[in-house]
Amino acid sequence: MKKNKIHFKGVDYKALYTDLIKKKCPDKMGLCEGILKKEHVSVLDAIKLNDILFPQQTIGNERINQKHKSYQEEDIREILSYQKLHNLSNSQIALKFKMSRNTVTRWKRIFTPE
């Protein structure tokens, strides 16, 4: 008997944040329209949306939320290209995206050709 494989395509951030904004904070729809009009909303866009919707987070909440973040290869490459484009160090990019410098270093080792 053959098993059907289900391929995970990733999170539909556009639908997720559209529903969230409609239910929780419809007054902020205007601030988020530019990002939500895009055909594909990336992880970086989702981080921007999250910062717009929830600007003040406590350090404890940030740490808890950070533990649950995951990035696909496309997202990692986008973050690394952002780093290169803006000439940022590993520490600077780690601070910007609230992640570990070790994570950035590991990604560069894996995804950057030598």
Rank of each mutant, 00 (worst) to 15 (best):
V11C: 10
L88K: 12
M99G: 01
I35E: 00
K108E: 13
D45H: 00
E73G: 00
L16Q: 11
Y71E: 02
L88D: 03
Y71I: 02
P113F: 13
L80H: 00
S91G: 12
G30A: 14
E33A: 07
N90C: 10
D45Y: 05
K108R: 14
E73D: 14
E62M: 13
E78P: 05
L49Q: 01
L95K: 15
P55W: 07
E78Q: 14
K28Y: 06
H40S: 07
R109C: 08
M99V: 09
P113W: 11
F54P: 02
K67I: 11
D19A: 15
E114P: 13
L44H: 00
T112I: 15
I64P: 09
S91I: 13
L85E: 15
D51N: 10
F54C: 03
L20N: 04
E74D: 15
E33K: 13
M1H: 14
L80D: 05
H86I: 05
F97P: 01
D12C: 01
C32H: 07
E114A: 15
T58R: 02
R77D: 08
Q57G: 05
G10S: 05
T105S: 15
K22H: 10
H7K: 06
L85H: 04
E114H: 13
T105V: 07
F97V: 08
K48C: 03
A94R: 01
K3R: 14
K37G: 10
I35W: 02
K67L: 14
G30P: 08
T103S: 04
M99A: 08
K22N: 15
G60F: 01
G60R: 05
K5W: 01
I59D: 15
L31A: 09
Y82E: 08
K28M: 13
V41Q: 07
H40T: 11
N102Q: 12
L53W: 09
N61M: 08
N61K: 13
T112A: 11
Y82C: 01
S91E: 14
E33H: 11
D51G: 02
C25Y: 07
Y71H: 06
I47E: 02
E74R: 14
V104H: 09
N90S: 12
W107L: 12
V11D: 06
C32W: 04
K108I: 05
T103A: 09
L36I: 12
F97W: 06
L53K: 11
I52W: 05
V43R: 01
K5L: 13
V104L: 04
A94L: 07
I64D: 01
L16S: 09
E78C: 00
R109M: 01
C25G: 03
T58I: 00
I64H: 04
S100H: 11
D45A: 05
L80Y: 08
F54E: 13
L36Q: 10
M99N: 06
L85Q: 14
Q92L: 06
I47P: 00
A94N: 03
K2D: 15
H68C: 08
I93P: 01
A46Q: 00
L95C: 12
L16R: 10
S42Y: 03
L49N: 06
Q92H: 02
Y17S: 03
L36F: 01
T103D: 07
